[in-house]
Write a protein that binds this DNA or RNA. Structure first.
Length: 723
DNA sequence: ATGGACAATGTTTTT
DNA sequence: CATTGTCCAT
């Protein structure tokens, strides 16, 4: 196969590795997607493995699509039958097929994060717990962590009283999901792992089928994912994983890069292949990246090198505040585009938190320049979009209580909280779900339950039930689009949204956008549409055909590359985020996040530091990101000196374990604290108002009676502390 | 049952 | 500050 000639020796040995487990440690830009796709092509084209017997898993749909199209390019129709998809989608498919072994039916719905929060709230209500004391988000995070660790409610470890509470909520939460015939994201993995573990016939079936398994972004797997892969590979043991611990940025979601080490333990005979050559970035960018990541302890050092050339210095730019930062970025882009040094689509602007996109968007809008923003919930999180999806979900699976309560009164049709509660109570009494009871009412079987509801309530419920029954009958007969149109028509959704205001028109526009997406599902049914909609990731919404700058979080940037990258908001508290300060592990992850951002850049990199940051409407001075201090000064070009910069590392040093802590150990402790009394040779006795360490000295503000406030350097002013 | 007004409360990252 | 939720008046 001639395509092998285009690979370097390491890539070749990965692509053509023989049977057995293989671990590929791939630095950024080292062509790992290429290796994965070429290996699939090699297995099919040269080894003669049937596509049907190969499984390749990724984390995002975008990555899956990318691989799919590259495999297509290499093999064309010969690739037909290959299983290639995200972890979640692959698991969903297995679960639908094997539902008979599971506590839900194969038309289960997938609850998104909003729904999940709703279920937690409901569980709190059911258990009479105060949501003020136990915030649903925090409880949900604990539940999610447990699931990622493969712990069902019964096995939830209880050490504190809070654990006890979480355990009860978790139990109720699972009950509620099952009643609705629903699963959450974590369940997709959890149930699949459980299925493969507990049902040997099923495990055998899949493990026999998948002669070769390939896993992308292996460092981001959690225990559930690791376990299910292990089971799937249990017969043939041909498991080929690609990852980079330095790019592990999802620990908060249960990902454990130690799975890389676990892999080496579980498969001691695994071949390990290191890909270090970078095909993406200029050397200057790689040097900065290495300077930053080398400060992390306990890592395999990778020497990133490229043949692309040394490249320009990285630009470090300070601005007065985040407003000005946004203006600077947009101006710079406009000017580079104006001078024809780059195309608008070459730029990406990356930030730590989503909230930071706002000022940037405003700056673009202000200059009337287009941009695109990565973020799915910007669309799928909209009320109107969620409503329409909920209608479809309800038609698909009437047991879905969450969707039911969402749409039963939107638009208002006289079924308020009271009526809904009555419906639920009565349904429970006769062992039906609310949706099933509604259907029964709608199909004319209403008289049997007439006594259960007040006249008006009964009428409204019956009317809605009849609508639902009509949609339900259509589900199997017509494409999703037709059903959707019928629903919109039946409930008068357009009138409900379009109130003549700009906002109303926009909302209806969003519904039409969803309609366009549904229109693509002709071959595939409603179930497929709902599943895809539930499993879209932020990255998936990225449209790369449009030639405009991209705004995205550092997390969303993983796996992407851009000619020119701006990383903004480089101050302590934002890039290492405050919430990571007291946790060394989290701190290391912040550093990796910065590293991921840096290594997205192909040609030029701009690091922007706002000296003041507005939070809650107020502007506050900030310190620059501590990570910047690790960048050797000769690698950067500084701009916008609004204040004296603290020195960057004077040269590149390889003392990875000697953390940049010397600054802290050398740092002086303040000798004077506010309120203490001091004696000055000239001004007499005074009281210390404040004191701070600056450079190598202590600066003390002292108030002297009859003299006023004086600012003194402790080393010069012969102050004496009075006891 | 519905909608408006005010209060509280909160900001990490997302399949 | 901006969103979200809760309470109250219609």
């Amino acid at each position: 196969m001639d395509f092998l000639a285009e690979l370097n020796p390491q890539q070749q040995s990965a692509v053509m590795a023989g049977e057995g487990p293989v671990l590929v440690l791939a630095g950024p830009g080292s062509g790992k997607t290429r290796v994965l796709t070429q290996r699939i092509a090699y297995l099919i084209g040269a080894v003669g493995i049937r596509p049907y017997n190969i499984l390749a898993v990724t984390f995002t749909n975008k990555a899956a699509r990318e691989m799919e199209s590259r495999v297509q390019d290499l093999l064309g129709a010969r690739a037909h039958g290959l299983t290639l998809g995200t972890f979640h989608a692959t698991c969903a498919r297995i679960l639908r097929r094997e539902a008979e072994h599971l506590p839900f039916k194969s038309n289960f719905v997938i609850f998104d994060s909003d729904d999940q929060l709703g279920v937690v709230k409901q569980a709190l209500v059911d258990l009479n717990l105060d949501p003020k004391r136990y915030t649903p988000q925090a409880i949900h995070a604990s539940i999610s962590n447990a699931k990622n660790d493969l712990r069902l409610p019964d096995a939830y470890p209880v050490q504190t009283y809070r654990d006890e509470v979480v355990k009860r909520v978790y139990t109720r939460y699972q009950e509620l999901l099952l009643v609705s015939n629903g699963v959450d994201f974590d369940d997709l993995l959890l149930w699949t792992a459980y299925l493969l573990e507990e049902v040997p016939t099923v495990r055998e079936k899949y493990a026999r089928r998948y002669e070769h398994i390939l896993v992308d972004e292996f460092q981001d797997t959690n225990l559930a994912q690791y376990t299910l892969i292990r089971h799937l590979a249990s017969v043939h043991k041909n498991i080929f994983v690609v990852g980079d611990s330095d790019q592990s940025i999802y620990a908060w979601r249960g990902a454990d890069y130690r799975n890389v080490m676990r892999f080496e333990q579980d498969y001691p005979k695994a071949q390990v292949i290191l890909l270090e050559q970078n095909y993406r970035s200029m050397q200057s960018i790689l040097n900065v990246a290495m300077a930053v990541i080398d400060r992390n302890p306990y890592r395999t050092v990778k020497r990133l090198f490229t043949q692309r050339g040394s490249g320009e210095k990285i630009v470090l730019h300070e601005t007065y505040d985040d407003r000005e930062e946004a203006v600077y970025v947009v101006d710079m882009i406009a000017s580079l585009v104006g001078r024809q040094q780059a195309r608008p689509g070459d730029f990406a602007i990356m930030y730590r938190t989503n909230a930071q996109s706002r000022l940037l968007e405003e700056a673009f809008l202000h200059r009337n320049l287009p941009y695109k923003l990565v973020g799915a919930q910007r669309f799928y999180g909209r009320r109107e979009v969620k409503d329409v999806i909920a209608y479809l979900r309800l038609a698909h699976n009437p047991a879905d209580e969450i969707s039911l309560s969402r749409v039963i009164n939107a638009p208002a049709r006289g079924i308020g909280n009271k009526s809904l509660l009555a419906l639920r109570t009565h349904a429970q009494k006769i062992h039906l779900s609310s949706g099933e009871l509604l259907l029964e009412l709608g199909q004319g079987g209403g008289s049997a339950h007439a006594g259960a509801f007040a006249g008006r309530t009964h009428a409204s419920l019956t009317t809605f039930g009849a609508l639902l029954a009509g949609w339900r009958a259509m589900v199997a007969e017509v494409p999703p689009l037709v059903l959707m149109d019928r629903i919109l028509e039946d409930v008068g959704y357009r009138n409900y949204l379009d109130d003549g205001t700009e906002e109303g028109r926009e909302r209806w526009g969003n519904v039409m956008e969803l309609r366009r997406l549904a229109a693509e599902y002709i071959e595939h049914d409603l179930a497929a549409f709902l599943e895809d909609v539930a499993l879209v990731s932020d990255q998936d919404t990225l449209e790369d055909s449009v030639n405009v700058p991209t705004l995205l979080t550092l997390h969303a940037a993983k796996g992407l590359e851009f000619p020119v990258v701006f990383i903004v908001g480089l101050n302590d508290g934002t890039l290492p985020h405050v919430r990571s300060f007291d946790d060394p592990e989290a701190m290391q992850e912040e550093r990796r996040l910065f590293y991921v951002g840096i290594t997205r850049a192909k040609d030029r990199l701009y690091l922007v530091i706002p000296l003041n940051r507005s939070a809650y409407g107020y502007s506050e001075p900030t310190e620059e990101s501590r990570f910047l201090k690790d960048i050797p000064v000769d690698l950067v070009e500084e701009e916008g000196q609004l204040r004296r910069r603290s020195p960057l590392a004077s040269s590149y040093r390889h003392d990875r374990w000697e953390s940049p802590a010397p600054a802290a150990t050398r740092a002086l402790q303040p000798q004077y604290s506010p309120g203490s009394r001091v004696q000055h040779p000239v001004w007499g006795e005074g009281m210390v108002l404040s004191s701070r360490i600056q450079d190598d000295d202590e600066i003390v503000d002292v108030f002297f009676a009859g003299v006023g406030m004086k600012r003194l350097a402790a080393s010069l002013a012969r102050l004496q502390l009075k006891t």
